[in-house]
Design a protein around this nucleic acid. Structure first.
Length: 282
DNA sequence: GCCAACGTTGGC
DNA sequence: GCCAACGTTGGC
């Protein structure tokens, strides 16, 4: 079984209105559940050989280590991120710094682009349809939707780094043809994801509380469809080629951190993908 | 803090 | 449906 949804993705329509600025309207998306208190982040170019994982593991599992801290630490990271991307495991308190692919020191623009995954095909999760493709975004009021349901710390932290006006690719995952379908922009910065408190929501998180919410979301607005769909397969070919010949997609998170539903793109990566629109598909 | 077991992601 | 990759859990 696969489920798709997975952890970090958003989407579905719910029905719950969100509170927020009057000009934005929401919606919902949703996603998964499971993560814990930890966070780590970063991308890195790291070698995955040693990468990661295990160390960044969570720490105390059961005890949310921080009860308030989550928010606070995360915020701290945000501030630090102006320079390097700070990574910290909330659970362990361990901190490391990594620089996003393509980000040069002092180049704050480098990380101002994102890729957000969503499932365009129906798939039930606890009875709720997770479907939310670009077409679904386009029919929302103001063509804007809140990216709720993200339940992965890295993805959540990336959303917290998002700023109004930044662009992101709307990626279709878990479907026949995975790939980039459109360009969207961030229209509301990180705020509490209300679905974590809703017992009926597939992404309900019993470990979270209103006093100390764990999950956040941003609002995105449709900008335009890609001139042509840029498939995962096509990008993968470039990724492979760029790994040997050196090219902009050589460290693309889509391949180096495949399961992350919200991922950063270096400007060169974003621009390269856009340049493919005017080329013939390979 | 380590690490084996387990669960999830998500392309194929 | 399969399964590789990798994140999470939780005992020790």
């Amino acid at each position: 079984m696969q489920r798709m949804c997975i952890k970090d993705r958003p989407i579905h329509f719910g029905s719950t209105p969100i509170t927020g600025p009057a000009d934005l309207y929401p919606i919902h998306s949703s996603h998964n559940r499971s993560d814990h208190n930890q966070q780590i982040i970063g991308y890195k170019k790291v070698d995955k050989s040693k990468m990661p994982p295990r160390n960044l593991k969570r720490g105390g599992s059961g005890k949310p280590k921080t009860t308030e801290p989550a928010a606070k630490s995360a915020k701290k990271e945000l501030d630090d991120s102006t320079e390097l991307v700070a990574i910290e495991c909330l659970a362990t308190g361990r901190r490391t710094t990594v620089r996003p692919p393509g980000e040069e020191k002092g180049n704050k623009e480098a990380n101002s682009f994102w890729l957000m995954k969503s499932e365009p095909e129906s798939r039930l999760e606890n009875g709720v349809d997770m479907k939310f493709g670009v077409e679904d975004l386009k029919v929302q009021h103001n063509q804007t939707a809140c990216w709720d349901g993200v339940r992965n710390y890295q993805a959540r932290n990336f959303m917290r780094d998002m700023k109004v006006g930044q662009l992101a690719f709307f990626y279709h995952s878990n479907c026949k043809e995975p790939g980039i379908a459109a360009v969207v922009k961030i229209v509301k910065e990180s705020y509490v994801d209300h679905t974590q408190f809703d017992k009926k929501d597939p992404h309900y998180d019993p470990r979270s509380s209103k006093e100390n919410p764990k999950w956040f979301m941003v609002d995105v607005q449709f900008v335009r469809m890609m001139k042509r769909f840029i498939s995962l397969a096509e990008m993968k070919q470039y990724h492979q080629e760029h790994k040997t010949k050196e090219g902009p997609l050589k460290n693309m998170a889509l391949f180096t951190r495949a399961r992350l539903s919200v991922q950063p793109l270096a400007k060169e990566e974003f621009d390269f993908v856009l340049s493919l629109e005017d080329k013939k598909p390979i």
